[in-house]
């Protein structure tokens, strides 16, 4: 691949769409999402289940293919290279070399019958042309780097012999083995305990900074995003509804959904039995989307226009929100 286009974003996504044919009609899982990601920055994508955050990112890197009955549209460029035109074989080459991925459940993303050292070294042999001995040496170094004690012994073990936290460390070692430019972490700590989650997030953040990688951190946990992301994209019902720096999102959300989400969280600073401000209703059926804003039925600020017309993500001073009645910059939730 050619060198980075100077000044341009590392990853550029325009009007990404993913649809699935179902018995009830076309389910628009991702409906026209655009964003840019600069090298060295972390983008947190937050949303609830069904918001399309995972499908969006998987579709960018060719993991949601037309083979699964999905219809994928839009434009994706990594370092200026158009990814949509790539063959399946070129994609395989790209993953692992330029893009590293860490999934939610390391038990399913690791090969249960292959030794850990070999799994880490595999990408190095394929993409970097290392011989087996060199790949094995590098695998042990990587195990040290991700904080696994007794790396030589662990390298010759199988995934089931490790704890959940250790397995996720191994998955991270595999993802960063070939020095990718972009690291995608899809709910990397959801299956882990709080204390282990903390260690894994620290590790991810350290690797991202030291290597100058760009990172996409997909999470449903606003707390995780708050502590680790530079920018945040909030997704609801397949669309990006707000995009801003992390501080702006938490200090002064413009989109009512973001505000409602932040308000509904129980907080340690509140006394016991504080009534939570719940969001009424539930997310829409993506196969039966009506006109207008998807959040309108649950929104306290809705007006007639919200039900008739669909708000597009408009940009104002570097931040974007999809709302006709945006909240003022002052008086944000959680402040």
């Amino acid at each position: 691949m050619s060198g980075a286009v100077s000044g341009g974003p590392l990853l550029s996504v325009r009007d990404a769409r993913v649809g699935f044919g179902t018995v009830r009609g076309l389910l628009r899982a991702v409906d026209g999402v655009s964003f840019d990601l600069q090298a060295g920055r972390t983008l947190g994508i937050v949303g609830e289940s069904g918001s399309g955050k995972s499908v969006l990112v998987r579709s960018l890197i060719g993991l949601v293919g037309t083979g699964s009955g999905a219809i994928v549209g839009g434009e994706v460029r990594l370092d200026g290279q158009d990814l949509r035109g790539l063959s399946a074989a070129s994609f395989r080459h790209l993953l692992g070399r330029d893009i590293g991925i860490v999934f939610q459940d390391p038990m399913t993303s690791l090969n249960p019958v292959m030794k850990i050292g070999r799994q880490i070294g595999e990408g190095l042999r394929l993409n970097r042309g290392l011989d087996s001995a060199a790949a094995a040496r590098r695998a042990v170094e990587l195990l040290v780097e991700v904080g696994i004690p007794e790396p030589e012994r662990r390298a010759s073990q199988y995934p089931h012999e490790l704890s959940g936290g250790m397995r996720q460390r191994v998955a991270i070692a595999i993802a960063i083995a070939c020095e990718p430019k972009l690291l995608i972490a899809d709910e990397p700590t959801t299956a882990l305990d709080v204390t282990v989650q903390r260690q894994i997030l620290d590790l991810l953040q350290r690797e991202q900074r030291e290597r100058g990688m760009a990172m996409i951190l997909i999470t449903h946990d606003l707390g995780v995003a708050a502590g680790r992301a530079d920018d945040i994209m909030v997704m609801y019902a397949g669309r990006a509804v707000e995009m801003a720096t992390t501080r702006e999102i938490f200090r002064g959300p413009r989109m009512p959904y973001t505000e409602a989400l932040l308000r509904s969280l129980p907080r340690l600073t509140d006394p016991t039995h504080t009534r939570l401000s719940a969001i009424p209703g539930r997310p829409p059926d993506l196969a039966r989307r009506g006109t207008g804003c998807s959040f309108a039925p649950r929104c306290t600020y809705r007006s007639g226009r919200c039900e008739a017309e669909e708000p597009v993500l408009s940009r104002e001073g570097g931040r974007g929100f999809a709302c006709f009645n945006p909240l003022g910059t002052s008086g944000g939730a959680g402040a």
């Binding site: 649809g19 076309l26 549209g73």
Partner: peptide, 15 residues
Amino acid sequence: MSASAAEPAIVARRG
């Protein structure tokens, strides 16, 4: 391929 172009094919599969 755009999503809207492929829609009829999917609707047809339903029946």
